[in-house]
Design a binder for these strands. Structure first.
Lengths: 188, 188
DNA sequence: GTCTATATAATGATAGAC
DNA sequence: GTCTATCATTATATAGAC
């Protein structure tokens, strides 16, 4: 029944490869090999490499939205929910150590490439930003909600970048602790 | 007399292009056009693209060392010197907004490429790290000197990444202020 | 929907004249 | 030291058979 299986497989494989190797370095051959189809078959599903990128970004946007919804339901307070966000640095630590943050590294790469899809990639950031902002709003920090959201995003990005640079897990644990302390002091 | 002029021009042009477009995307044609030489002439000065990368990294290491020496002499206290570091986010703001941090983005890219020179790129980070560490040491934070150095690096990286993502100057000013507050509270 | 060619353009790299 | 010409390889992308 499902005729979209191959298309989905392409998206998921491209998603992983773009993360691990970068968009530019990932070739059709790389993706084709991973999915086990020929390069020619490829263009039946996507007209160009840029179309795959768009599909991958859309896929990531969907996954992010679902994750935020889960955190929204699971977290009993805005405080707990923000902690869920910070905690992905620990949950995904082994991958972050190897490849950095999937959102930050893609956005940075597309920015350098002046790629037309860089705005779409930024939207992934904005999903987190708006979600965090709404948590801080709920905590009563109405004038600084966006500033605090950006602060959490910024700290997380820095942690991911240096974790990737030095492949240092201890550093991440230390910084995550600091960031949660910052959050707790904010509550006072 | 100077027979290294062309070589130096190549390095400086490559340096800028690697920063603006990324290493992978920058081609020999790009560099050759900028220097106004033919692609063939190129290989008289460098055997491969990787050799240019190595030369560019060495060039950046030199420039960084000189900058750190200047800060060391100019700053009257470790506190002032650390502020010099933080302040580059403001000094280079227009470029950071467009291309991110030259150190962080190169390191991240070379990591994804699994490039053999990624260790050399990390050394640029380590220059800053060791220098900051020595400042914190001088301030008396002997047990946490490296942690604090990494913290400053981390915060700076995050700020640069989001400044690049959102092209937001106000955000950088706000975060730099926060980081300096953090530093001042540390002194107590 | 999948495959095997093949077209086309760009890249890194080399050879050899001047 | 600089150039032109050329090679080999790879990449995106297309055409057409099955």
């Amino acid at each position: 029944m499902k005729s979209t299986t191959t298309r989905d497989e392409i998206i998921e494989s491209a998603d992983q490869l773009f993360y691990k190797k970068g968009f530019e370095k990932t070739s059709f051959s790389d993706i084709a090999n991973k999915v086990n189809i020929s390069r020619g078959n490829f263009y039946h599903h996507f007209k160009s490499k840029d179309e795959i990128l768009s599909a991958v970004i859309a896929y990531r946007l969907e996954k992010t939205e679902k994750m935020l919804e889960t955190w929204q339901l699971k977290g009993k307070s805005p405080f707990e929910r923000i902690q869920s966000f910070i905690h992905i640095l620990i949950v995904n630590l082994s991958k972050i150590k190897l490849y950095g943050c999937p959102v930050g590294t893609l956005t940075t790469e597309l920015n350098k490439l002046q790629h037309s899809s860089r705005g779409e990639a930024t939207q992934i950031f904005s999903l987190f930003r708006e979600w965090l902002k709404s948590q801080f709003n709920e905590l009563g920090f109405k004038n600084h909600a966006d500033n605090y959201a950006m602060h959490v995003l910024s700290r997380s990005q820095g942690i991911a970048t240096l974790a990737n640079t030095y492949h240092d897990e201890e550093f991440v644990h230390y910084e995550v602790k600091l960031l949660i302390h910052w959050l707790q002091n904010l509550k006072k």
